[in-house]
């Protein structure tokens, strides 16, 4: 009896460890493609980029160690500082304005009105449209001589501008396009957040006689802060990486380029047009550090304004 007991126990232990080994085998097998792919194409390249930022890197991967030279050059490069300033202006203007508009539209759509689906579809259209095409049509709208915008302004006796080639306006023209093309996307996420808000809060507030505006600021906004937090973090990161619209809307030899080019644009130009890949690697490391700082500040400040239920 005792012997049998022992036997079953060892069998049990054996069975368990077999099952565990089996589990492990399956687990490693199943994570292998993604893990290997991410290591080869993302994680190792990250360290390579860091390494390359201390080298003079040729087009075919040959390099020479130059120490801190790229970083020294970067600090003295007025183009980099201008690009950083452009990126900051772009982000600081496009993200808050865009998100406020998204909240406003989401709130209007959330007020039990007819045609919700139609409105949502229309507002979402820019999000599924290729940025290249968006840039093309906006350049055409902004065209100084024949563009729709200047023609409309003329009707109100306002003098037209060279929206994308005048250094004074170009960046703001790009920002308007950025807002236009992201509002619908963020709105859909925020609206989904609003639709999850429990009715009971509103019913309680209505008994207390709260109006629409009060309910919006005292109930809706606090309830959707987790969604707003997500949208803000993602929008800031995306805005800091702006490239497509600037690359496509501003001509390469335009005088407005210096006042509009973003950090990523500068990186792209240094890496793949001027073939200074080592210096470009240093450029992109700056971007990395900035995004890290922004994300860190965001997460640190979140307990000040984000309410999780």
């Amino acid at each position: 009896m005792k012997r049998r007991d022992k036997n079953t126990r060892t069998r049990h232990v054996n069975h368990l460890s077999n099952k565990r080994l089996n589990d492990w085998m399956w687990a490693y097998l199943m994570i292998f493609p993604t893990t290997a792919g991410l290591f080869v194409f993302y994680i190792y390249p990250f360290f390579q980029s860091f390494f390359y930022s201390f080298t003079d890197l040729g087009s075919f991967g040959q390099y020479a160690w130059v120490g801190l030279q790229n970083y020294v050059r970067l600090v003295g490069d007025t183009e980099v500082w201008q690009a950083l300033l452009n990126t900051v202006i772009y982000t600081v203007l496009s993200v808050p304005v865009g998100i406020c508009l998204s909240i406003l539209i989401a709130a209007l759509l959330n007020s039990k009105i007819k045609g919700l689906g139609t409105y949502r579809t229309l507002y979402f259209l820019p999000a599924v449209t290729m940025p290249v095409a968006i840039a093309m049509v906006w350049r055409w709208l902004y065209n100084m001589d024949y563009g729709l915008i200047n023609s409309i302004l003329e009707r109100f006796s306002i003098e037209g501008r060279a929206w994308v080639s005048d250094p004074k306006f170009a960046l703001y023209s790009v920002i308007i396009v950025a807002i236009w093309s992201t509002v619908g996307y963020n709105m859909v996420i925020i609206l989904a957040g609003m639709q999850q808000c429990s009715r009971t809060y509103y019913e309680a507030a209505e008994i207390d006689g709260a109006g629409t505006i009060t309910k919006f600021f005292k109930i809706t906004i606090p309830l959707i802060t987790p969604t707003l937090f997500f949208v803000t973090v993602m929008s800031l990161i995306r805005a800091f990486q702006v490239f497509d619209t600037i690359y496509l809307m501003i001509e390469r030899n335009s005088t407005a380029l210096e006042r509009t080019q973003s950090l990523v644009y500068l990186y792209y130009r240094n890496a793949f047009i001027l073939h200074e890949k080592g210096y470009a690697s240093a450029n992109v490391m700056v971007l990395f550090v900035i995004i890290l700082i922004i994300t860190y500040i965001q997460f640190k400040s979140q307990n000040k304004w984000v309410h999780y239920e």
Binding site: I43, F46, Q48, S49, V264, Y267, Y268, F288
Partner: peptide, 15 residues
Amino acid sequence: LLSVLMVPGQIFLIP
């Protein structure tokens, strides 16, 4: 693997 999400995509481009 998750740390990849923290890094702007352009960093990987040259390698």
